[in-house]
């Protein structure tokens, strides 16, 4: 059985949705408490959305120093599949697992809407079940989702095809319409849209399933 650990910080609010979606796909979800310095027993990690530590100072700035994050970083560096969704993406950039940063949305508005994203690379632990060019309908729900990075980093991301998802109609001002990226070894992915909220037709879209399914595949390979 493939087990996906879902990190829970004070202020996380998407962990149960993530567990539900993992279970729906036939995997086993397990919560990982922020104060525990281990991810032992899991085959993949999701850092879910929410407002870890109240987003105080900056989103992810305090969460990255949690005991569990030291274990998540070590797991990622050893090749384990790790995905950060929304606030989780912010945490992974702060932790240095992914380059760049998420700044306030261009129009200074909190966005809560369905978004269309196009798969730009199917070579990552979160997009292997998709094809380049697929358009997925997945909701976004964020204030700081405007991805930015240095010109050198952007050039590197593009040259190495590490942009995995792009907005069809950029809602937040992200450079290069970037909705999601992966690290150099393609086992760490961060994205602003919420695939766990697009995991059943009752939610209005099932387009998140191939993404979460990709993670289960990667977890199975590791396990």
């Amino acid at each position: 059985m493939t087990t996906v650990g879902v990190v829970q910080f004070p202020g996380t609010n998407c962990e149960l949705d993530a567990l539900e979606a993992i279970g729906h796909l036939g995997g086993t979800g397990q919560l990982l408490w922020h104060g525990d310095d281990t991810v032992a027993g899991v085959d993949a990690v999701i850092v879910p959305g929410g407002f870890a530590h109240g987003d105080y100072l900056r989103p992810g700035a305090i969460a990255r120093f949690s005991p569990v994050m030291q274990a998540v970083v070590a797991f990622a560096r050893s090749g384990g599949p790790v995905v950060g969704i929304c606030n989780g993406f912010q945490v992974l950039t702060e932790a240095g697992l992914l380059p760049g940063a998420l700044q306030k949305n261009r129009d200074l508005k909190f966005l809560c809407a369905m978004a269309e994203v196009q798969v730009a690379s199917d070579n990552s632990v979160f997009t292997s079940r998709t094809n380049v060019g697929d358009v997925l309908r997945i909701p976004v729900n964020h204030f700081e989702g405007n991805y930015t990075c240095s010109a050198e980093t952007l050039a590197e991301l593009e040259a190495e095809e590490r942009v995995v998802l792009r907005y069809v109609d950029n809602p937040n001002g992200s450079v290069g319409d970037i909705a999601g990226i992966c690290n150099g070894t393609r086992n760490v992915v961060g994205l602003m849209p919420h695939p766990e909220r697009a995991s059943h037709r009752l939610l209005g879209s099932e387009d998140g399933l191939p993404l979460l399914g990709s993670l289960l595949d990667a977890a199975g390979v590791t396990a």
């Binding site: 100072l57 900056r58 700035a61 120093f65 950039t93 702060e94 380059p99 760049g100 940063a101 700044q103 930015t148 990075c149 240095s150």
Partner: peptide
């Protein structure tokens, strides 16, 4: 290390 994110 903490008070700023040097990227931005």
């Amino acid at each position: 290390r903490f008070l700023t994110n040097p990227v931005i």
